[in-house]
Write a protein that binds this DNA or RNA. Sequence first.
DNA 1: GCTGAAAATAGTTAGTA
DNA 2: TACTAACTATTTTCAGC
Lengths: 159, 159
Amino acid sequence: MPNELHHELAPVDRAILRVLRDNARTPNKAVAEAVGIAPSTCLTRIRSLCERGVIRGFHTDVDPGALGLGVQAMIAVRLHSHAPRHVAAFVKGAPDLPGVLSVFHVAGPDDYLLHVAAADTAALRDFVLEHLTAHPAVQQARTSLIFGQVRGAAAGAAG
Amino acid sequence: MPNELHHELAPVDRAILRVLRDNARTPNKAVAEAVGIAPSTCLTRIRSLCERGVIRGFHTDVDPGALGLGVQAMIAVRLHSHAPRHVAAFVKGAPDLPGVLSVFHVAGPDDYLLHVAAADTAALRDFVLEHLTAHPAVQQARTSLIFGQVRGAAAGAAG
DNA sequence: GCTGAAAATAGTTAGTA
DNA sequence: TACTAACTATTTTCAGC
């Protein structure tokens, strides 16, 4: 997470972000009204926020179950400290593995946390065996089934 | 995650979701063009997807660093199996704790994973001490600093 | 950098097959 | 259910402050 805070965020910008965080499809005009500035000004600010990297994207939250992905899991992955080549390959490829929602690089005994979705527990098992256990960089993979997930109040920054 | 799949998702709907997943602010007209249907039809389908709960929301991905939240952590929380009253209270309040991005209810030795953001490591420590360690329902809290996070290719469903 | 109005573009509804 | 077309609203640009 490369983070250069060139200058503090203006209160107006914070207000804009608060609105867009909860509904990214809020029309520009409505955002402008909510924060008390002209639509044209609001548009300029939103663009600026995007260009400065404060806004990293607008995403639609889709129910994975509707896409046939009925189960989710958090998988703690420990890598071999040797074989840096393999490790680099794994890290590069992990986000593109099928069903991977997010990859967290963490401190501590585990190196990575993979948040994944799969059709069912059988598919989840296959995912772990095929893409994790079998990978030369992976030393250990501990899978925790996710019963449920709730977005926090601070979500949006950054889910 | 309550998931009733009444009927399979139409290919058009899947196409619409693919477009909106990567950019939730894509104008309806552009979505319609991309998937090859009329704007009015597209609007109807998107609304239907929202009503059926397939689309759960449109969120803006904000750089937490820009908001003064410089560090993130994944905290594994183990609760006391007794004292169900306290447990219920904790679970209910957890998403609203300051800086909480997401709460995962997981199977296994740990009960919950809290994805949190804080201003700095001192603030993170205070968060753990004040809201977790001190809580009567919490038996143990293991904090793992997050070095970095990458969205997976399947993200959007559901991050 | 903000505003406000004009021009361009998009969202929405109604009517029809 | 999807389309065309008319209507309404919004986005976006730009000259002036």
